[in-house]
Structure formats: C-alpha cells, structure tokens
C-alpha cells in the first residue's frame, strides 16, 4: 500500500466517497454505473445489492466467512493517484465458471476449469468493473485516478481474504471495506465487490475525529 504519503486531497476524496453509512450519493451512482457496464459486458441484467461500509478486525476476517476453504476466485487490483487503495472481486468457483461462459459466449456449464484464457476473461471483468467505477468517480470529481492490471487468484476463500489483511496489517489491525454485490437474478450469480481505502485514510480520519 502507498500509505506513507497520504495527501489532503486523497483524504478528502475518500471522505467524499465514503460519506455516510450506508453510503449514498456519489458511491451509489458510481456502483450503478459499474453495474450498467457489467451488464453490457455480459449481455444480461446486473443489479447492485446493498451498499455498506464495514470495519472488520483482521483477526475476524476468517470468522466472517461461512466456509473458509470454499473454492474461490479473487480478482485483485490496486488503485492509485487520488484514490489510493485496492479492490477485490470475489466469486465462488462455480459462479466464476458461469461468468466465463457468458464472457466467452458459451453455453452455461461449458467451462469446467480455469485455464489461461478463462483467467484472462476474469481479469478483464475485474478491469472493467473497477475502471467503470473509477471513471464515474473521476467524471464527478475531476480527480486523476489510475488502476493496476488485475491479478487473478484461485484458491481457498480464506487465502483470498488474507491478501486484503496482509496489505493493511503493517498500519492497522482492521480492514475498512466498502462492499456491495453485483447480482444477476436469473442465474443467482453473485460477484462480491470490495473496495479497501489505503489504511492510512482510516487512521487519519480517526485521529481527526478524536
């Protein structure tokens, strides 16, 4: 994480986005925009679920899951410039293969394993989701925003969540998460979308409010 040199501009932008809890306004608009883009990409209706912010102690991240050993796909991206942080899209392995079928225009059930092509399609989904989100924010705030190429993990759910914990652990004992789900009702496909501000934002915000 780029926690060492957080600027006032970065704090202000994250504060604008986080706003209230449940977060509304700019964040909901950006998530809605993202859902439209995702819908365009897969050719099916996608809606957003509840939009929430949560602060979870690192040591409760595993307890936070129903099945820590569940086969899971995590698509991980880093955000730079005025909105430092990271983002993770989390899908069950079954949903990830279902999504790949849509992306590759195959019949549902065609994909049975995730090779290079399938991983690339999933990475592209991560790219589209986060770039749509950031574009919506940037259009409103006129802030320069940048995202990294995506990294795709296929492993146990606890291993995917550990990446989020490790990235903040040097600064804080808690993970601040802005979360929602992208849902396709017809298939019950669910993509969990987590945004994690740079942990220094949380630390500075707390110091400011004390």
């Amino acid at each position: 994480m780029t926690s060492k040199n957080i600027t006032e501009q970065q704090i202000e932008l994250w504060s604008t986005i986080i706003g209230n809890n449940p977060p509304e306004g700019l964040l909901r608009m950006a998530m809605q925009h993202t859902a439209y883009s995702l819908s365009d990409m897969v050719g099916r209706p996608v809606k957003i679920g509840a939009l929430r912010t949560e602060i979870i102690p690192i040591n409760q991240l595993v307890a936070y899951t129903d099945d820590p050993e569940a086969e899971t796909v995590g698509i991980y991206l880093v955000i730079g410039d005025d909105l430092p942080g990271q983002a993770i899209l989390i899908l069950s392995l079954v949903d990830a293969m279902y999504l790949v079928d849509w992306l590759l225009e195959e019949r549902p059930g065609t994909t049975t394993k995730l090779g290079d092509l399938e991983r690339s399609a999933l990475a592209e989904t991560g790219n589209l989701v986060l770039s749509s989100f950031l574009n919506a924010i940037a259009e409103f705030t006129e802030s320069p925003l940048r995202l990294s190429p995506p990294a795709v993990m296929i492993d146990m759910l606890a291993s995917v969540l550990e990446v989020a914990a490790t990235s903040v652990a040097a600064i804080t004992d808690e993970v601040f998460i802005i979360k929602t789900n992208f849902l396709n009702i017809d298939s019950s496909l669910t993509i969990r979308f987590w945004l994690l501000p740079d942990p220094a934002i949380l630390t500075i915000n707390r110091a400011g409010s004390e």
């Binding site: 880093v78 730079g80 990294s148 990294a151 990446v163």
Partner: peptide
C-alpha cells in the same frame, strides 16, 4: 499468492 499488479513487492 499473487504477483502484485502494481509491481510493489510489499
């Protein structure tokens, strides 16, 4: 677990 996308090795 991953090669960090931004190349940061932390």
């Amino acid at each position: 677990m991953i090669t960090r996308p931004d190349g940061n090795d932390i």
